Amino acid sequence: MQKIAKKLVQVMQECSYIQKTGTNDFHHYRYATSADVLEKINMALVKQKLCSVVLPEILQQADVTTAKGNIEHMATVKIDIMLIDAESGESVSFSGIGTGQDSGDKAVMKAQTAAIKYAYLLSMAISTGDDPEADTKTDQMTSIPVKDKQQIQSVQTICCECGIKLTTGVRNVSLNKYGRPLCMKCQKKLQGVA
Score class of each variant (00 low, 15 high):
I71Y: 05
Q61F: 10
T128F: 01
D130T: 14
D130W: 06
V92H: 06
D80M: 08
K78N: 12
M74E: 12
V108Y: 03
V54T: 14
K49P: 00
T136M: 08
A86V: 04
S93W: 00
Y120D: 05
L59F: 07
L83F: 07
A44S: 13
T99W: 10
T99S: 15
T66R: 01
K47F: 05
Q61M: 10
M109R: 01
K47V: 01
P132V: 13
A111M: 03
K78D: 05
K47Q: 06
G96C: 01
L122G: 08
T128H: 02
I84R: 13
M124F: 15
A125I: 08
T99A: 15
I58K: 04
A44M: 07
S123V: 02
T65R: 06
E90S: 06
K49Q: 13
V64Y: 03
L83K: 02
I84M: 14
I58D: 02
S93F: 00
S88V: 03
D131P: 01
K49T: 03
T128E: 04
S123G: 15
G69Q: 01
E133I: 12
Y120R: 08
D139G: 11
V54Q: 13
K47A: 12
V53M: 10
Y120H: 15
V64P: 02
T113K: 13
C51I: 04
V46A: 12
V77K: 08
G89R: 02
Q61Y: 07
V77L: 10
I97V: 14
G104L: 10
C51H: 03
Y118F: 15
S103K: 12
T99C: 14
S95Q: 14
L45V: 00
A125V: 11
F94S: 11
G89S: 03
E90H: 02
K110T: 01
Q48P: 01
A107L: 10
G129W: 03
V46C: 05
L121C: 09
M141V: 08
Q112N: 09
D80A: 05
D139K: 15
A75S: 15
A107V: 04
A114R: 11
A86W: 00
V92Q: 09
I97H: 04
F94Y: 15
G100N: 04
V77S: 04
K47L: 08
I79M: 08
G69C: 08
D85A: 05
D105C: 10
G104P: 07
L55Y: 10
Y118D: 08
A86T: 09
G100K: 04
S95W: 11
D63Q: 11
I79H: 05
M109V: 03
L50N: 04
A75I: 07
L121D: 02
D139C: 06
Q140E: 13
M109E: 07
M82Q: 13
M124H: 08
